[in-house]
């Protein structure tokens, strides 16, 4: 599945137009391809004809006014909602009929706009749940406390500490996840997602509720995560400094429709975008 392709020109189905895939990822299968994706809620076309391609190591941004359908796109990608129309390919594999859990096994992990931690469990335990698939002892060996239990748990806890060190959160390992400050909860969600060893990380408003210095640090860390894990990151964010600062490709959504796609410069100078979105903020 990872074999190189000489050029995407030979592909049976052409890449969607206005592809924003970065140069370095052009020779390999894109990690994500959405084709004509759409969902209706009753009469409301929450997302319609959504086409997007994301490169293997790309940081992509999904922006748009409130209610544009951004979170809905994430819910479609992770099968929290089943699409009404269209196709989602992960690493070239069709995801039709897959469950949310299976999508995670296929390499997609996410965070949530309204934080969804395991609030009654410790920070460490939250990450260990993310590492569930990495641990290989059976329920019986866990109950009987066989050597495989101790070995696997020790390795997982070390790994969890490594992950916590990305955000310098080692000290909070024993704290109850629900008792953390807001920013720390968002960071923990990212780590829990990373623990599942994804190849595509979806972040829904990761900087929401963070102060400017926290946001600046987060920006650096998102890039660091991409560089160390060699994964693609797709993020929804209202903080334009963050989006324009780190996203190589940006997709703008308005009323469920893609109104623009391109680099930060393209987007910032696009009159349609300025009118629909940026204009409102000035």
């Amino acid at each position: 599945m990872n074999e190189k392709r000489p050029s995407h020109k030979g592909k049976m189905v052409p890449l969607p137009t206005n592809s924003i895939i970065p140069e370095r990822d052009l020779a390999v299968t894109p990690i994500l391809e959405c084709r004509h994706l759409g969902i209706d809620f009753g009469g409301l076309r929450a997302v319609d004809d959504f086409n997007l391609t994301i490169g293997r190591t790309e940081i992509a941004g999904l922006i748009g006014p409130n209610g544009a359908g951004k979170t809905t796109v994430f819910n479609l990608l992770t099968k929290v909602y089943q699409p009404t129309r269209g196709t989602i390919l992960l690493d070239g594999v069709d995801t039709a009929g897959k469950t949310t859990a299976q999508i995670n096994h296929m390499g997609v992990a996410r965070t949530f706009q309204n934080i969804r931690l395991f609030g009654n469990m410790s920070v460490m335990e939250n990450i260990l749940v993310g590492l569930h698939g990495e641990m290989n002892y059976s329920t019986l060996s866990g109950v009987l406390r066989l050597p495989s239990f101790f070995r696997s748990e020790r390795i997982a806890r070390e790994r969890a500490m490594e992950l916590l060190s990305i955000f310098n959160m080692e000290d909070t390992a024993e704290a109850l996840a629900g008792s953390l400050p807001y920013g720390a909860q968002r960071r923990l969600e990212i780590l829990r997602a990373l623990a599942t060893n994804p190849s595509l990380l979806l972040l829904d408003e990761p900087a929401a509720g963070m102060n400017p210095s926290e946001t600046a640090e987060l920006m650096e860390n998102i890039v660091k995560i991409r560089d160390t894990f060699h994964i693609a990151v797709m993020l929804i964010e209202h903080d334009m400094n963050l989006v324009m600062g780190i996203c190589e490709g940006i997709c703008v959504l308005n009323f469920g429709q893609v109104i623009a796609k391109g680099t930060a410069e393209d987007i910032q100078s696009n009159p349609v975008v300025i009118e629909a979105y940026l204009g409102k903020q000035q």
Partner: peptide
Amino acid sequence: AIRDNRIAAESVG
């Protein structure tokens, strides 16, 4: 984890 948050539990597989 499933008790605390079903959707998040599904999202981590």
